[in-house]
Design a binder for these strands. Structure first.
Lengths: 221, 221
DNA sequence: GTCTATATTATGATAGAC
DNA sequence: GTCTATCATAATATAGAC
């Protein structure tokens, strides 16, 4: 199922494929590997990921994968990095479409929740750290700092427009907020892994929790 | 390192050890196996538990363990059941020592949090369900129903004494409450696994979250 | 960039001697 | 209730042919 195109083009032109074409093909294969890896994690658990199973599903022999990733941990790292980028982009878009302040904060967290239930396995990898001996590379980790920055910005906006009190500017405000979304997500993923955001017993609690934010960071009298 | 006592007593009396003595020794070994299993999970992750490693640490050969547990999953189930009993007992005690109602609810949840950070690996097994193909047996699962019952009772008490509004009697109130403790715990375990309850960035948020309960279940006007 | 072959290591589990 | 020996399986990873 692979190589047909490349061989055809090579036979047709008589020359080797253009470098960018080869590079693009390589990127496609990498993307396919990561896609399959996500499927495997969803089916077998985050720890159940194995290069052997990925190779089986891709229809190649395990050693071939080492041309694309130097180790299993490198695959985890790529999944982590891509997932983190993906969730941050999703949150950023959702926040940009909402009024700055509390609405944007809630929209961003809700987008994070929706994404996490739609990408359960990667969300576990990102937020639960279930793989021993796996530490995300510094570059991967950088994106999670961006996530905190996003939330801090929205909290500051909410203070600026008078929706929240000055407590929301404190350093730990973001930890309180992230515990709220983490709680809903953990319960949903652990107890109702098949249900999307908005269904089940836990994610519908999210809007109610968000309505508590003004009480958590009260305006000064 | 074992067997010395039994051989001595057998040699001394000339007869076989009394059945209850043998049974007690067996229970001690089972307890020791579970103890070591907890250590292994703490060190290698919940999924890193293996009978081979337990046997190594216990100083026996792997097949010997099958005299005590029929499979690895049976060990997980025993850990699950014991952990669930343990955390429910801890919560029950903490709640009994507090005023019925909101204080008891908070004391129970706080005890659950303290226990979970002190028993990280088992808490992950209980609340995250990270082991694929592991379903707790019905008996094990029964204790987690008791946990819900405890919380519902405290919520009802809080309504009865006028601390919370009637919303706390609704079926989903316990899901909201459990999302609060789950959020703090998830963040603490994932990001600061070495820190006990009360330290770090997340578990100190718990009292602040509990102070939001009256706003979550407001009294009628 | 794919393959075969292989090294190395590990696992869960069973049979059967003692 | 312990052991040795073994089965069956699986994993990551490397060497080297094509």
């Amino acid at each position: 199922m692979t190589g047909g195109q490349a061989i055809t083009s090579r036979a047709g032109s008589g020359g080797p494929p253009r470098p960018d074409r080869r590079a693009r093909r390589r990127q496609e294969t990498i993307a396919e590997i990561l896609d399959i890896a996500r499927d495997v994690m969803t089916a077998e658990g985050v720890n159940g990921l194995s290069l052997a199973e990925v190779a089986r599903r891709l229809g190649v022999q395990p050693p071939s994968l080492y041309k694309y990733f130097p180790s299993l941990m490198a695959v985890y790292d790529a999944l982590f990095a891509q997932g983190q980028r993906d969730v941050v982009a999703t949150m950023t878009t959702a926040m940009a479409d909402a009024d700055p302040g509390l609405e944007a904060l809630i929209a961003g967290l809700e987008a994070c929740g929706r994404w996490s239930l739609a990408n359960r396995a990667v969300a576990e990898l990102l937020f639960w750290r279930p793989v021993p001996n796996f530490r995300p590379s510094p570059e991967s980790f950088a994106a999670s700092i961006e996530m905190v920055r996003l939330q801090r910005g929205a909290l500051a906006d909410a203070v600026a427009v008078g929706q929240l009190g000055p407590g929301a500017l404190e350093e730990d405000a973001v930890f309180l907020v992230s515990a709220l979304i983490a709680g809903v997500l953990t319960q949903a993923i652990a107890n109702e892994p098949e249900l999307p955001w908005g269904e089940g017993r836990f994610s519908p609690m999210f809007p109610r929790l968000m309505r508590l934010l003004p009480a958590a960071f009260p305006l000064p009298d």
